[in-house]
Simulated assay, not measured.
Amino acid sequence: MALVTITGYPSSGKSTRASQIKAYLDTKLAADEYDGPKLTVEILSDDGLNLPRSAYNDSRSEKPARGALFTSMQRQMAADKILIVDSLNYIKGFRYQMYCAAREMKLRVCTVFVVASPEVAREWNIDRQDGCFYETETFDNLLMRYEEPSSMVRWDSPLFTIFWTDADIPGEGIWDALTKGVVKPPNAASLSVAKAPTDALHTLEQTTASIASHLFSEASGSGGKVLLSLPSSSPFPSEPLKVELNLLPRTITLAELQRLKRQFVTIHKKAITLGSTEKGLVDWSEESVASKFCTFLEEHLV
């Protein structure tokens, strides 16, 4: 349904604001006038994942901690849930990664920027009684590296800013963003890759080799329309595979056909092994491969 990204300085009051947001959303969902889908509100945090503050002491420990947070976020996102991610989320690239994951799930998103001055955040960090404080060097380093969100970029918007002096949260604005906001479709960065069938490589090799062989045998050199009837590699072929080419009047050598065949196979192998990001399904049938290879030959046998 929706993803709320909480971001802010360390010890700036993010968890407090996340709890306030959850309480507000729970109240709205339980209200008699609410007639929307049944939703739950959950908070995902470093504490909930047992990630210690010391994980941010150096990059070697921070990277797997961030990975654990992102993996858990992907696992918990759902169409019937509002998920609040309560963590530093201080890197623009990481917030963008979260945004793409939400778009792939077709969720609404918003970002909440919890603001406290460095002096206030430092004082709150020192005064923490729960043991969840940052080492002084780590705290200063995180402050220096913090990348503020901006409403001008799509992955941080809509953006809601809450100052440490604010008693309340902009609950109504957050509610509208999560329940009425535009659900953006997945973009190229978040589309699932369509994989080729397991026999695609075999079909590619056999079909192109058969066309090259039959074309060398039947092309007269006079040009014009050439009709080839090829044996199908299908275990239950209904009829031979028929393809047609229009060639210029010239002599075609076997070496030339083999070279073009290798080029065509090399180009399409990458799509088979790595997948394709083309819109729609990619057809790897004998007929489709044969048609594409014939077009390729017509363009290069000039």
Rank of each mutant, 00 (worst) to 15 (best):
residue 177 A to V: 03
residue 86 D to L: 04
residue 222 S to T: 09
residue 235 P to H: 05
residue 180 K to A: 05
residue 16 T to D: 00
residue 274 L to D: 14
residue 159 L to Y: 04
residue 103 R to I: 08
residue 295 T to R: 15
residue 81 K to P: 01
residue 197 P to Y: 11
residue 77 M to K: 04
residue 39 L to R: 06
residue 136 T to P: 06
residue 104 E to V: 03
residue 63 K to R: 07
residue 253 T to Y: 00
residue 44 L to V: 13
residue 276 S to H: 07
residue 18 A to P: 06
residue 281 L to C: 01
residue 148 E to S: 12
residue 194 A to K: 12
residue 15 S to T: 15
residue 7 T to K: 07
residue 270 K to T: 10
residue 227 L to I: 15
residue 265 V to C: 02
residue 156 D to P: 00
residue 164 W to P: 00
residue 63 K to Y: 08
residue 49 L to K: 08
residue 213 S to A: 04
residue 294 C to R: 02
residue 109 V to R: 14
residue 101 A to M: 08
residue 239 E to I: 04
residue 122 R to Y: 04
residue 103 R to F: 00
residue 185 P to A: 12
residue 33 E to I: 08
residue 170 P to G: 09
residue 270 K to Q: 10
residue 294 C to F: 08
residue 166 D to Y: 07
residue 64 P to M: 05
residue 104 E to T: 03
residue 35 D to R: 09
residue 183 V to E: 12
residue 228 L to D: 01
residue 204 L to I: 09
residue 52 P to E: 06
residue 8 G to W: 05
residue 47 D to K: 12
residue 47 D to G: 11
residue 68 A to Y: 07
residue 92 K to P: 03
residue 196 A to S: 02
residue 113 F to G: 02
residue 28 K to S: 01
residue 102 A to I: 05
residue 202 H to T: 10
residue 138 T to Q: 10
residue 180 K to L: 10
residue 226 V to P: 09
residue 73 M to L: 13
residue 58 D to K: 06
residue 5 T to E: 04
residue 234 S to Y: 12
residue 262 R to Q: 12
residue 129 Q to F: 00
residue 257 L to P: 02
residue 152 M to R: 14
residue 224 G to Q: 13
residue 79 A to W: 02
residue 91 I to A: 11
residue 92 K to I: 02
residue 202 H to F: 15
residue 275 G to N: 09
residue 94 F to K: 13
residue 85 V to I: 07
residue 57 N to E: 14
residue 142 L to F: 01
residue 97 Q to W: 04
residue 251 T to W: 03
residue 95 R to G: 05
residue 255 A to K: 09
residue 284 W to Y: 15
residue 227 L to G: 04
residue 132 C to K: 14
residue 249 P to F: 01
residue 256 E to G: 01
residue 276 S to V: 05
residue 135 E to T: 06
residue 246 N to T: 13
residue 133 F to N: 11
residue 61 S to M: 12
residue 10 P to S: 10
residue 107 L to C: 14
residue 90 Y to S: 13
residue 178 L to M: 07
residue 74 Q to W: 02
residue 240 P to A: 11
residue 56 Y to L: 00
residue 71 T to A: 15
residue 15 S to V: 07
residue 265 V to D: 11
residue 190 S to P: 01
residue 247 L to R: 06
residue 290 A to F: 05
residue 281 L to T: 14
residue 111 T to W: 09
residue 116 A to M: 08
residue 257 L to Y: 00
residue 269 K to W: 00
